[in-house]
Design a protein around this nucleic acid. Sequence first.
DNA 1: GTGAAAGCGCTAACAA
DNA 2: TTGTTAGCGCTTTCAC
Lengths: 351, 351
Amino acid sequence: VAKKAGVSIGTVSNVINGRPTVSDQIRDRVLKIIRELNFRPQGHAQTLRQQQVSHKCIGFIVRKIDHPWSSAISTGVKHYANQKGYLVYVASTESKHNSEQEIVQSFVSKQVQGAIIAPALDDTVEIDHLFRLKINNFPFVMLEDVHGIQVNVLSIDNTEAISSAVKYLIKCGHTNIIHFAGTANESHTIERINAFRQVFSESAVKLRKDSIVSCGGELKDGYRVGIDYFSNADKNKFPMAVICFNDVVAFGLLSALKELDINVPNQVAVIGFDDIEMAKYWTPSLTTIGTSLFDMGEKAAEMLINIIESDKILPIQKITLHADLILRKTTCKLKRTPGSMIKNFHKQAVG
Amino acid sequence: VAKKAGVSIGTVSNVINGRPTVSDQIRDRVLKIIRELNFRPQGHAQTLRQQQVSHKCIGFIVRKIDHPWSSAISTGVKHYANQKGYLVYVASTESKHNSEQEIVQSFVSKQVQGAIIAPALDDTVEIDHLFRLKINNFPFVMLEDVHGIQVNVLSIDNTEAISSAVKYLIKCGHTNIIHFAGTANESHTIERINAFRQVFSESAVKLRKDSIVSCGGELKDGYRVGIDYFSNADKNKFPMAVICFNDVVAFGLLSALKELDINVPNQVAVIGFDDIEMAKYWTPSLTTIGTSLFDMGEKAAEMLINIIESDKILPIQKITLHADLILRKTTCKLKRTPGSMIKNFHKQAVG
DNA sequence: GTGAAAGCGCTAACAA
DNA sequence: TTGTTAGCGCTTTCAC
């Protein structure tokens, strides 16, 4: 290392670690050489030698870091982890599978002690890296179930959630209910679509072929698809109801409906998913389906840290959280029969 | 390690790394022992030995991970970093200073190669850890200037930003302009308050004593303070204008004003700060001050990675970005003189 | 106040 | 196929 450049070797170590047993003269010289060589000590070797329990920390792998869903869960994870003395690193895969593998691998090599993973699933599910983790007894908790391997899972009951939303809409008098679905390939998207289909198969209300609209999971998707769908929409179909893949899609849709002068909730009812903080503050405040994301984060962190701190191997846990329908202002009971509504609202829209 | 438990030692290594030169019988036995002992290999030692350039990665230290400002910048950071083959870890300090120190230290020990830091500043600014970084030639870029040390900085021109907003409001005919200020101790908060004061000192319009309202930086702060302030507000003071610390505070305020049936922008004009994505989609869409946060993230990552990849020490860089006023629907030119407005709007509010 | 040497846990190359 | 050994870059102990 920098020893050749100036003097000895243990001395350099003493300088770097600010030990007082070094003469000012030598210290200055060493410091100068270090700067000249742009020398950066290797943390790995330091911690290895020091046997320091380095800083305890866990990782959280999300699909999109700028999505409120991720952020809200992060906050819960962090809260619990910090209590237990762990730092949290958040890394985003952008739903790319090889990105997930890289991150996982880097966590292992960096001695991150465990991970919470919102998996980036696509069609060709590769889970080699998860097997590798298991071999290394690397603790991790998934936020979605993964087929083909026994893992710890904390997830949400999408089927029940969608079902309660659809049933509520039907009770309100809606017959024309559609779903703005999320990004293809994501397991939440698929589960929610399936749940949507299933509820209809068990109910008197019919599901139309075009009831499931492929949309995406972001604000701009909701807006774009909202404009596309409703600017050409047959007003005779009103009142309608849209269950959105998540809250931000719902926000985008609400923005589009506002622009098209379509009344919410009377002409079109909107339901979101996740209950992010802003849902309550939006105008009109958003009816949505959700469980406390903060609690979910805390729970995931708790599961993970239990595994980390146990010296025995714990049995696999699979926990499913229930989501509640939270009624706000983007839905309401329809006052009249759909038939009479049509003219009424049409008139209103024109006048 | 696990050698004593079963057989030899290099063999265990071979098993863990899935090398094919191991008999099934031994592999199974070793695997079983590993599981029994809950043995987790040390990534540090592995990478040290392998001299693998481990995965290149950088860290991003934010104050609040669930704040859209952080998320938006993260996205830019990640985009640029990934292009260059770096992973990004995001860690949040919750504005706690010792948390920042811990994270920085853990980055160093984990061989994260550089960091972008949104500093958690409080009154007693401690920057020992930053000095330590400099000694180690650890590359970092700050998103706010720090006194007492020469560091690389990418920041935003708060003074110019606030100034342009105030001037615009005055041009619109506003005379009663207030500021919902952010969290105390944060340098953005202080800079914006100072800028606010300064503009008035240079203008004909007077600043009242109570024009700066301590609020906070979150959605619920904007809502709470909005309700407090305007439910008791003297309607004679209308029209007013509020420059908020950031966009989410503005959202909270808009929600409060809606609840209080106060018209935006005619009775109260609102300006945000940051121009986060939702600002455009909110109803009414939010007038705000901002620079592209995505670009800012990219720029910060670019600065950082340049430093990392240079074998020489680069000169300190300080870059200030300009923020533009983005006019949307929460502000407008006032049509009449303030005097005549009062009765007019009062009537409207009652009717 | 400074230098030499041992050894952290692991992998890779080689010997058995 | 398995066991043995050197050595990654650093810190630390102990002579000097």
